[in-house]
C-alpha cells in the first residue's frame, strides 16, 4: 500500500459492496489452480502474447505458469502482495532479468511476431522497443539534456544536432517537464526534485520512441503532488504507447489502468477490466487483497 498517496486514507474508501465479513482463516493456498486465471487474460491481436511463462531463481520457481495477453495501447496494472512476482514478471518483458545470473525464464513470450527470449534476439533492439521506468528515479549524473539525449545518441536516432534538440524538446514536452527545465537544460539532473527526476526518466524512455513502456512502481518514491503529475502523464501517454505498470497503490491502478492483473505467490490469479476487479472481483483471493485483508 502506498501510504504517501493522499487519496488513500483507509481501505474503507473501497466501495461498500466489496466489504465482506472477516473470516476466521485466510483463504487457503489450495484455492489457486496452477495455470488457471479467472477473468479475461486473453485478447485479440495483442502486443504481448505470453504463454506458460515460468521464472526460476536458482531452484526456486518465482513465476508459476502464467499466460497473459497485453493489448495494443492498453494500460495494464499488475497488483498483488509483496513478493508475488509482479516485478519479476514485468522484467521478463524487456529481459532486464538477464543481468541476474541465477534467473531462468521458460515459456513463450512474444512481442508482436517476435520471440523475446529467442537465442538470437538482439536485446538492444528489444529494449529500444520496450522502455522501462524504475521505482526509484535514476537519472544519470549528467545534464538534463544529456539524460534525454542518451538513448537517441546510442541508437543513432539523430543525424544532426538540431534533430537531437528536437527529440529532447518533444520528449520533455510529452513528459510535461519542458516548461520547468527549458532554461536549465545544462543543469545536472540530480539537482532536480524527486518528481521531476522521475518525469525526466519517463522523458528519457520516450526519447527512443518505444512501443511499450514498463513502469515498476513509478510513484512509490514520490510525494502526492508528483504522483498526481505522473499519473496524469500515464493517462496522456496511453494514447501512443502500451503501458504496463506495477503498483502497490490500488487507487493508482484504479485511476490509470484499463485492465488489472492480480498476482499471488507467483500465480496470475485474476485479470479483468479494472472497474470489475475493484467492484466485483471474481476470485476470492483478489477480493481479500483489495479489501485489505492481506498484502
Amino acid at each position: 500500500m502506498n501510504t504517501m498517496n493522499p487519496t488513500v486514507t483507509s481501505e474503507a474508501d473501497m466501495p461498500e459492496e466489496t466489504l465482506i465479513p472477516l473470516q476466521e482463516e485466510r483463504p487457503a493456498e489450495t484455492v489457486i489452480e496452477e495455470g488457471k486465471t479467472v477473468g479475461i487474460p486473453f485478447a485479440d491481436d495483442p502486443k504481448f502474447r505470453l504463454r506458460n511463462v515460468e521464472v526460476f531463481y536458482g531452484e526456486e520457481r518465482a513465476i508459476k505458469n502464467i499466460s497473459l495477453d497485453i493489448g495494443r495501447n492498453e494500460v495494464i496494472a499488475f497488483i498483488g502482495p509483496s513478493g508475488c512476482g509482479k516485478s519479476t514478471f514485468l522484467r521478463c518483458l524487456n529481459r532486464m532479468n538477464d543481468s541476474i545470473d541465477i534467473c531462468r525464464v521458460k515459456g513463450q513470450l512474444m512481442l508482436d511476431q517476435d520471440d523475446i527470449y529467442h537465442t538470437k534476439r538482439d536485446v538492444v533492439e528489444l529494449r529500444a522497443r520496450v522502455g522501462m521506468v524504475f521505482q526509484k528515479p535514476n537519472p544519470f549524473p549528467k545534464s538534463i539534456y544529456d539524460n534525454v539525449a542518451y538513448g537517441p545518441r546510442i541508437h543513432g536516432l539523430a543525424n544532426r544536432k538540431s534533430d537531437l534538440d528536437e527529440i529532447v524538446e518533444s520528449s520533455l514536452r510529452k513528459a510535461g517537464l519542458w516548461d520547468e527545465v527549458k532554461d536549465r537544460l545544462d543543469a545536472t539532473a540530480t539537482g532536480m526534485s524527486g518528481g521531476q527526476q522521475q518525469r525526466l526518466c519517463i522523458a528519457r524512455a520516450i526519447a527512443v520512441s518505444p512501443e511499450v513502456i514498463l513502469m515498476d512502481e513509478p510513484c512509490s518514491a514520490l510525494d502526492p503532488i508528483a504522483t498526481a503529475k505522473v499519473e496524469e502523464l500515464i493517462a496522456e501517454m496511453s494514447e501512443s504507447y502500451t503501458i504496463v505498470i506495477v503498483t502497490h497503490s490500488m487507487q493508482q491502478a484504479a485511476r490509470v489502468s484499463n485492465r488489472t492483473a492480480y498476482f499471488h505467490l507467483g500465480h496470475l490469479v485474476e485479470v479483468n477490466e479494472t472497474d470489475k476487479v475493484f467492484t466485483s472481483p471474481e476470485h476470492e483471493l483478489t477480493e481479500s487483497y483489495i479489501t485489505g485483508r492481506f498484502g
Binding site: N94, M96, S99, V123, V124, E125, L126, R127, A128, G131, M132, F134, K136, N138, P139, F140, P141, K142, Y150, G151, I154, H155, C201, R204, A205, V208
Partner: peptide, 27 residues
C-alpha cells in the same frame, strides 16, 4: 556506482560497454 544507474542505461537499450563508457565510468 548504484545498480540503478546500470539498469537505467541497459533499459534504454544500451549495451554493457556503452553503459560502462558513458554512465559508470564518468560517475
Amino acid at each position: 556506482v548504484p545498480q540503478t544507474m546500470r539498469d537505467g542505461s541497459l533499459a534504454l537499450g544500451a549495451t554493457q560497454s556503452e553503459t560502462m563508457k558513458k554512465v559508470i565510468f564518468p560517475a
